[in-house]
Each structure stands twice: as structure tokens, then as C-alpha cells.
Nucleic acid binder design. Structure first.
Lengths: 337, 337
DNA sequence: AAACATTTTGTTAACGCAAACAATCAGTGA
DNA sequence: TCACTGATTGTTTGCGTTAACAAAATGTTT
């Protein structure tokens, strides 16, 4: 592999002159420049990013820290794809590459989210719903590590973040239904009690409390994000003493299960039961009736997070910036209005 | 940021001793080792991967060259996710990170697929359905660049690849239908005539020719991978002089369109028309009737490709290895048997 | 205790690049 | 012609690491 030295020798100039030509920095006579470029071409010279990075402390790469792709892609969501698509656009614009670490453990302890940065493999970090412990958060803030969090609220540490307003979104949709006359609302929860799922449930409660509705215990259903748990939920409702008029599902896949079982059991959607999903999967348009669902603007969120990160990489990295994106109700025939 | 020198000073040893401890290489007295590790801990030392890479010519990263994520994720396919999930597993196993380049152009010319490697940002390359020109292929082969192609057949260049047998798969499904009595087969093509889409069509032709069937011109339909083009296709068939008894669709989304329009137009599926999709989208189980579809084992393909690449990174990189994965028919109610 | 082997530690150089500084050259005005 | 300016080119150094070689310390045998 040719290096600067080889090119310099061939072009009959010094190393630094070649460097200047490559980087378009400093004055070089046109004639010399041509000679150098010719040598670069002939030797198929590529600047070594390691040498470059070692010297300039910049590698033109950002790290994207995220659960395993497999994990993020389950339940049929487009979460990972859309987020990445947004991030990718900004990276392309800025000529940066994206690095995805795979080692989720570091010397037996919890994953060291900052390893990638400290090792100088990346210039900055995008962290997707990280499980940072407080000490790590403080480390990020104190050391002014260029970093933006997606899907968590980190304001108390002074760390920039981008999130969607799940809670407010569900609240508004629930409010909308209540205003349309619904009084008996139910909620089908998801598998783990992570923050996102709780937010959704909280938005539901916000509306319920605001309008002084009562939610029967049997209307708070447990699910595991699967179609079957949606089916089960509907059966549970049917076998109860009183049917709700609407059910909020923590994800679309479970909402599908509810729809299918409703059809099988002869429950009319939306006349007897309105069904609301969460995720905005493409399928929602293809069910019968079509499924009303709530969608996070994931592409925009990825884009925004990356934009904030690059802003930090260029200027001072210490000013925390924050963006909350509203979620969107994708209307469907599964809601009675 | 602490470097080897700082750690050495604190531990009262020489730089190379610290290096030895970090890399578990060579003999170091237990007592010394402890002192060094203590200093590492106290100074929060992380080995700089740039210095390391520059010296050892190894960066523990592989590059994944693929069209933009946005592009690969359209039409609702899980192509990208599944492939990446397979690759990720192998990378995790081998403690390698994954680098995704974003610059699809290099100095105004076509994308330089090898840039990442020549710049020493990665140790090897996984190339997903690349549009390599012959000279680049030869370059890969001649220079023994560790590289595995996914989704193309590169045997004539001696480059390792992993692919699925789309052609054979469709052939077998078509043959199956023919054996079940179908004589009038139609095919709904996709947008561009890329190799994959052609393969699918060719498999169809293989079966048609083998059994001496005639395919009316109006049974070869043009589509653009969208639901609407599926709907249009069905309308075209209805308005024709003779209806086929089965339609193969180049992707699932178009097959959905066919199903929907069939329902709207009163065409009975599968009694009057069998519908076969391609991709194996999750939705296929949720339509009514469920959609028969053909699935590539993408996770396995990603896994296999990565495995081959790591084998090259360890041993001699010149022996080309190849794997063709059979596709799978996911049965559904949309086929009359 | 001397000779030797083995373990342990250290010195130097190199990887490829660019910043800081130094030197040369051509052109300009006095 | 000479001093001066600006353009152009070159030399040296350091970024952080490890390999190769060198030296010192320890242990073992006679």
C-alpha cells in the first residue's frame, strides 16, 4: 500500500506538499499539484485514516449505541430502520461514517457506553434509549463528550436528547375519544415495564383522571407484544362483566390480535369496540377495518439527533439541546367517532 | 486522556510493560501486573485504537457496504434488519465492530467500494448486492482483499459470495402448482429489472417451459412494488380475455394489493385465483386468506457471509467460498392445492 | 560460587500523517 | 541593486501503540 512517502518520491516533492494537495490546504503551485495528483492516481494512494486520526484527533465517524439489532427489530417495528435512515442522511451530508459496536459487555461489567469514544474510534455518540447509570451520565456531561441521547430524557444531567411525546400523544388521542363520547377505556400493556411503555400508560391515565373516568381492573390487561396476547386480551374482555368501548394497545401487533379475535368472536369493530394501536406499522392500512395507530416520527428524530451531534462536533459541545417530537395519530376505521 | 506513558509513569514501569499487561502478552510478574492494572483503573486508561491499528495493521472492524438504509428498507421488507442481525451475531462473537460508510460517491466517480479498506478503516468487507464493475472485482480478487459478497454470484472472479436460490425457489413453487393442476400462470414483475427480480421471473419461466405451458402476454404484468400496482394488476387480469389461475408477485406488498382488489372485485382467492408473494413479510399471516409467500433465510445468509469473512481474516484470504441458501415457501390460504 | 537458563523489564524504531517551524524562491518598490 | 513581501516548498517533531532487540534480575544446576 502506497503512503505519503511513496507519492512524494514519485512526484519529486516532499511529504508535506503531498499532504497539502490531498487536503487542499496551504499554497501549492498548480504545476506541482498536478504532478502530485498524477502520482496519487498512479500509485492508487489512499490516505490512511489511522495516521490521520492519530494526528488530528478526528476520525470522521460517529458511534451509534443501540441494543442488538435483533432486539430492536422485534415485534415487527421499523424502529431501527427509520431511526437509522434519519441518522444516515445527516452523516452522508457531513461525510461521516457510522460505527456500530457489537460488544455489549466490557470486562464483565455493564456495557461501557463510552468505550468507543475513549478508544478514539468515533468522534461522538448517538445513544438510543441507553441504560446509563447516573455516574456514566455525569461522566458524559463533565467530560463534555459529544453525545446525544435518543428516546430518553436526560435534562437533569445536561445531556442533549431527542424524544417523542408518547405520553402527551396518547393523552390527546384518549381525550379525543372521550370527547366523542367514550367513557369506558381499557389499556393493553406490553411486556416489560420500560419507560416507553409506562409513558404510554401514563398518557392514558392522564386523560382518564382529567375526565374522572373509572377504569375497571379487568380493563388493564397484560400483554407481551404478540398477536396472541392481543387475542387473549379480547377474550378476557369478553368474559368480563362489562365491556369497554375502546382499547389502547401498547403496540400494533397486539392491536392486530385484538382485531382478529374480535372478528372471530363477533365483536363489531368499531361499533362495539374501538381499537387503537401504537407504532404506525404499514399493516395498519391493510386490515379490515384499517387500524388507527399512533406513530413516532422516527426518521425525523434520528435526523434531529444527528444534527445536534454534528453541531456539537463543530462548535462548543457543552450547550445541551433538546427536542421533543409530537406523535401522530394515523386514523383508521377501527375508531368510532 | 491518559495514554500508555501516563500509566507507565504512575505504575513506575516502562511503557512496554504496560502494553504487555493490557494485551496479556509476554511475561509480567503478578505484582507488577497488579500495579499496572491499578494505574489503568485510576487513570481510566483506554487503549487508543488508532495507535494500535497503525502499528498492528488491524482495527477490529468490518465494513458493511450496502445501498442507503432508506433504500434497502423500502417496500416494507425486513431485508436490511435480518441481514444485519445475522452479521451482528458473528461480529459480537469475534469482538469486531461494524462500520457503515455513508459516502456513496468518491471524487465524483462511481462509489469506490474499496475506499474503506484502503483507508484502513476496516479489516474486511461485506458487500450487499454491490454494483461492482469488472475492474473492481478483479482488484478485490488480485489484491486478496478480505471480502464476501451477499446477493450476487461472483464465482468467475474467485470472490466468495452468499446468495439465495430465488430462481430455483420460484421454479419449485411453480412446479408444485402445476402438479396440482394449474395451467394458467401469471407473473407480476417489480420496478427495475435488477438481477434479483429477473431471477424470480426466470424461475417462473423455467417451470413454464419445462411443462410446455403457454403464458399469455397480458399475464406478464408490470408493477412497481406498491400495493396500488398490485391492485392495478388484478384489474388488468379481470379485464383480459382469459383469467389465469395463479399469480406470482415479485414482492409481498404487491401481493397484498392483488388480495385486496380481488376481495373488492369479487374474485375468490384461492378458488378462482391463487396468489403467491415474495419476501415472507410478517403480514402474510394476518391477511384473509393468509398469503402464501417465499422467504429468503436472510439472517442465516448474513451469518454465513460474516463467518466466511472472519475465516478469511484469520487464515489465508484467497480461497473463495460460496454458499447458496434455498428459499422457503411459507404456506398460506391464498394457494389452492 | 560460577555458569547457565529463564523470567522479567527496558530501549529503540516504526506505523502514516499533519502541525509547527524553517527555508527557499519569485516578484515588488525604493 | 537591495531590502522586503508573499508564495511555495521542506524539515522536524509528535500523535499512541507494538515489534524487535537488549539488558537486567532471578532461579537452577554443578
Amino acid at each position: 500500500m502506497a503512503n505519503l512517502h511513496d507519492v512524494a518520491k514519485r512526484a519529486q516533492v516532499s511529504i508535506i506538499t503531498v499532504s497539502r494537495v490531498i487536503n487542499n490546504k496551504g499554497n501549492v503551485k498548480d504545476e506541482t499539484k498536478e504532478r502530485v495528483l498524477k502520482a496519487v492516481e498512479e500509485l492508487k494512494y489512499y490516505p490512511n485514516s489511522l495516521g490521520r486520526g492519530l494526528n488530528s484527533n478526528k476520525v470522521n465517524t460517529i458511534g451509534i449505541i443501540i441494543a442488538t439489532i435483533e432486539e430492536v427489530s422485534i415485534h415487527g417495528t421499523h424502529y431501527y430502520n427509520e431511526l437509522m435512515a434519519g441518522i444516515e442522511r445527516v452523516c452522508t451530508k457531513n461525510s461521516y461514517d457510522m460505527l456500530i459496536p457489537t460488544q455489549k459487555k466490557f470486562s464483565g461489567k455493564d456495557y461501557d457506553y463510552l468505550k468507543l469514544y475513549y478508544e478514539r474510534k468515533v468522534d461522538g455518540l448517538l445513544m438510543v434509549s441507553p441504560d446509563l447509570v447516573p455516574s456514566q451520565m455525569e461522566e458524559v456531561a463533565e467530560n463534555k463528550i459529544p453525545c446525544v441521547v435518543i428516546g430518553d430524557r436526560t435534562e437533569k444531567y445536561g445531556i442533549s436528547y431527542v424524544d417523542s411525546d408518547n405520553r402527551g400523544g396518547i393523552f390527546r388521542v384518549a381525550e379525543f375519544l372521550i370527547q366523542k363520547g367514550h367513557r369506558k377505556l381499557s389499556f393493553l400493556k406490553g411486556l416489560k415495564d420500560n419507560r416507553h411503555v409506562n409513558d404510554r400508560l401514563n398518557g392514558f391515565y392522564d386523560a382518564v383522571h382529567k375526565y374522572g373516568l373509572t377504569v375497571r381492573d379487568e380493563w388493564l390487561l397484560d400483554g407481551d407484544f404478540s398477536v396472541d396476547s392481543g387475542r387473549n386480551a379480547l377474550r378476557t374482555l369478553i368474559s368480563g362483566e362489562d365491556m369497554p368501548t375502546a382499547i389502547f394497545c401498547a403496540n400494533d401487533i397486539m392491536a392486530l390480535g385484538v382485531l382478529f379475535e374480535a372478528q372471530a368472536a363477533g365483536v363489531k369493530v368499531p361499533d362495539q369496540l374501538s381499537v387503537i394501536g401504537f407504532d404506525g406499522l404499514e399493516v395498519h392500512r391493510y386490515t379490515n377495518p384499517s387500524l388507527a395507530t399512533i406513530r413516532q416520527p422516527l426518521v425525523d428524530m434520528g435526523y434531529a439527533a444527528a444534527e445536534i451531534l454534528f453541531q456539537k462536533l463543530k462548535g462548543p459541545a457543552d450547550l445541551p439541546e433538546t427536542r421533543i417530537f409530537p406523535v401522530e395519530l394515523l386514523m383508521g376505521g377501527s375508531i368510532k367517532v
